[in-house]
């Protein structure tokens, strides 16, 4: 019979139409700004900079080595190295980024910067509501906007952050151990020199110079 299929189809759409008012299960739409789907842990979109402690300027892990800037495929990272040095988490003097800008309108979320960073200083964020009415400045994230605490990192990627923290803690432990050893060695060397100097007072100036030099060498090695 002609038109049988049409009637079947019409019945199906009518069932959908009325069913969607009766049965809320049918409607799969999530009303986005009010309702949100639970976030998947592996979500990532744009990079941010991690800092330890409370003060973001002091605790920034980044040492401005500029590896990420060189590796970034669309070249959306811009770093300016500082002239002076600041002590890092373990107290060692390091450079820090005087300027660190990421243009997220250029960023393609490839995560290469995260993979190349030797200091675990840059990680991927989950913040996606970045729309802005400022066409040029709104999407250019500067250092202060990029800096986010380690706690925040823990919050968005718990498993990954725990691993990173463990590795960092191990590294820092080793570092401190080495520093301690080096310091001890330097102290021992200094003590020996001091003893020698006591034995031969006229060469004091040269000996202290030597001591300082050997201390510097030990530090160099520890690094």
């Amino acid at each position: 019979m002609l038109g049988e299929g049409i009637i079947k189809g019409l019945a199906e759409t009518a069932r959908n139409f009325f069913g969607s008012y009766v049965n809320k299960e049918r409607l799969t739409t999530v009303q986005y700004p009010e309702e949100r789907l639970p976030r998947i842990e592996a979500t990532r979109d744009f990079p941010f900079l991690v800092y330890d402690g409370d003060d973001w300027e002091k605790g920034l892990r980044c040492v401005a080595c500029q590896i990420c800037e060189k590796e970034c495929p669309p070249k959306c990272i811009y770093i300016e190295k500082s002239k002076d040095k600041k002590p890092d988490a373990v107290g060692k003097p390091q450079n820090y980024p005087a300027k660190f800008d990421i243009d997220v309108s250029v960023c393609m979320s490839c995560q290469i910067c995260v993979e190349v960073c030797p200091f675990d200083a840059i990680k991927m964020d989950v913040q996606f509501e970045l729309s802005s009415d400022d066409r040029f400045g709104g999407l250019l994230l500067t250092k202060d906007k990029l800096a986010k605490s380690n706690e925040y990192y823990h919050e968005i990627h718990p498993t990954e952050a725990a691993g990173v923290d463990a590795a960092l803690a191990e590294d820092r432990e080793k570092e401190k151990e080495k520093q301690r050893l080096a310091a001890a060695a330097a102290a021992a060397a200094a003590a020996a020199k001091a003893a020698a100097a006591a034995a031969a007072p006229p060469t004091t100036v040269a000996a202290t110079k030597d001591g300082a030099g050997s201390g510097g060498a030990a530090k160099e090695e520890a690094k």
Partner: peptide
């Protein structure tokens, strides 16, 4: 709205 409801949308 009608088309949406027929396709189980809002």
């Amino acid at each position: 709205k009608g088309l949406g409801r027929m396709q189980n949308r809002y």
